[in-house]
Design a protein around this nucleic acid. Structure first.
Length: 489
RNA sequence: CGGGGUGUAGCGCAGCUCGGUUAGCGCGUCUGGUUUGGGACCAGAAGGCCGCAGGUUCGAAUCCUGCCACCCCGACCA
């Protein structure tokens, strides 16, 4: 019995999460603290996310490019807020050579190879990109400039967690330049919608679109838009952000253009990103105590076929027919022909790995011209006639995708609790957790005070928050709308 | 950086309090056989700088000192 099951969410949520990541084969720890090895299965999911997002970026007029990993240290200090936001967590390259240790074993840093100017490993690329854009942008004809890059970045976090917060992570960062303020704002809003659409339609992860408070805003932005998701333990996950950068970086890096009226002006900017953190969100949105659950659209493997009790000529022939039909529909399917492992073992393994649909095929099924279908999300199991099987499975995958979203949305909606007093606020946070919708007086001071008292932060001011007269739960000052609080990852 | 925990076979652990043969168990792996509709069983085998360094001792996984790493909880953050 021991070693087989995984820790339940109720027993220890963090442990459950780590075990899913490790045992489903998504990632491994690395020798360096805070770094992780993303294994083929985990990377397969990320690749699917990447593929879809990339397509959506291209469809909206963006192109990919690549900017360097190393950034001159001085670049970071050009924008005051930006430097303050990131300085604390930058990895710095100081030397460019190692040498044999003159005093013994191993290698040491060669002191004579000290760099003239130290380099930082990008925590994000605004600075190097805007330094480059200065040369690329001269006139309104060069605008808008719509560039994305897929890259790794490094932020030296004190405390790390697989996928959710690692020292190095993979992401995409879009950086755009526009002639007008409104155009830049529209861009950042459009990307926010794109992210929300992706999260909901592909990850089956419901999100709330909103605006960050000044306190939670990206360092260097005038406005930060966010999509916020709710995890099964009641904590919120900032899942993607899109920033309207105003003219801050244009001014810091002197990026100007000649407008149609022959006047020189600073360009307007946006930046936006989602990262491998989404993998963490995916896991914590859907998975259960049996393991991972992956929505069909992102699953590297959508259907697995298990021969019962083991492969043989008759079953193989039968399965090959099914495989061909499924593949012809673009369904990602695998036939597990391992003779050593018994069906029960395989069932558990694929459940752990979150494969959406499992077909089991044995003698009984061949005789009755049927297959046994098990769906991962509901654990439902039933026999299905071979006739029309491909159509059935295709539809089933769609149903699973939808049902995962609906389930997550129902959970999320149940966990948005409106409160009107601070006592209620604390009570809900303690007993129920999740998002708390409450009035706030709009000051950073109050926000920080509430954080200090409860650990909850303002996740966002929802874009669709209705105008509503109310009083701040802490200070009693007037407030025009409710904001969402939560404890966050 | 504070608090807690853990480092022993590929993985999970016991042994350590109270030093003493050849360091054990489960899972996995390999061999052979019997099995086979939800993690099979039997027999055999391989696999270890007991985290690192020093010390105490006739003798250290075990005691002492120092160090390192990782995990969890905080502070900080996407």
């Amino acid at each position: 019995m021991e070693n087989k099951g995984i820790t339940s969410r109720e027993d220890d949520y963090s442990k459950w999460y780590n075990e899913i990541v490790l045992r489903a084969g998504l990632a491994d720890y690395s020798p360096v603290k805070g770094c992780m090895v993303i294994k083929p299965y985990g990377f397969g999911i990320w690749e699917r996310m990447k593929e879809q997002l990339d397509k959506m970026f291209k469809e909206t007029g963006h192109v990919n490019a690549y900017f360097p990993l190393f950034i001159p240290k001085s670049f970071l200090s050009r924008e005051a807020d930006h430097v303050e936001g990131f300085a604390k967590e930058c990895a710095v390259v100081t030397h460019h050579r190692l040498m044999n240790n003159p005093d013994g074993e191993g290698v040491v840093v060669d002191p004579s190879a000290k760099l003239e100017e130290e380099l930082i490993v990008r925590p994000t690329s605004e600075t190097i990109i805007w330094n480059t854009y200065r040369d690329w942008i001269n006139s309104y004809r060069d605008l808008p400039l719509l560039i994305n890059q897929w890259a790794n970045v490094v932020r030296w976090e004190m405390r790390t967690r697989m996928f959710l917060r690692t020292a190095e992570f993979l992401w995409q960062e879009g950086h755009t330049a526009h002639a007008t303020k409104n155009e830049a704002i529209d861009e950042s809003r459009m990307i926010l919608d794109l992210y929300a659409k992706f999260a909901e339609e592909w990850m089956a992860m419901p999100v709330i679109k909103g605006i960050k408070t000044a306190n939670e805003r990206f360092a260097g932005a005038d406005e930060t838009f966010t999509i916020e998701a709710l995890m099964q333990d009641g904590k919120a996950l900032q899942s993607g952000t899109s920033h309207f950068l105003g003219q801050n970086f244009a001014k810091a890096f002197d990026v100007t253009f000649l407008n149609e009226n022959q006047k020189r002006d600073h360009v307007w900017a946006t930046s936006w990103g989602v990262s491998t953190r989404l993998m963490g969100g995916l896991i914590m949105t859907h998975s259960d105590d049996q393991g991972l659950i992956i929505p069909p659209r992102l699953a590297p493997l959508q259907v697995v076929i298990v021969p019962v009790p083991k492969p043989n000529e008759v079953i193989n022939t039968f399965v090959n027919g099914i495989m061909e039909e499924l593949k012809a529909r673009g369904i990602r399917v695998k036939y597990d022909m391992d003779k050593k492992k018994r069906p029960g073992f395989k069932y558990n393994q694929y459940e752990l790995q979150g494969v959406p649909v499992r077909l089991a095929i044995g003698k009984r099924d061949l005789e009755n011209n049927q297959v046994e279908i098990a769906r991962r999300d509901t654990k439902e199991k039933y026999n299905q006639p071979t006739e029309g099987l491909t159509d059935h499975i295709e539809q089933l995958l769609v149903d699973i995708q939808n049902s995962l979203f609906e389930r997550a949305k129902a959970y999320r909606d149940e966990h948005i609790t409106p409160v009107d007093t601070f006592d209620e606020f604390k009570e809900v946070l303690e007993s129920k957790s999740g998002f708390i919708s409450a009035h706030w007086d709009g000051t950073t001071e109050t926000e920080l005070k509430i954080k200090e008292l409860t650990k909850a932060t303002i996740r966002c001011i929802p874009l669709d928050a209705p105008e509503e007269e109310g009083k701040c739960i802490l200070t009693g000052q007037p407030s025009g709308k409710r904001v969402l609080f939560a404890k966050a990852y």
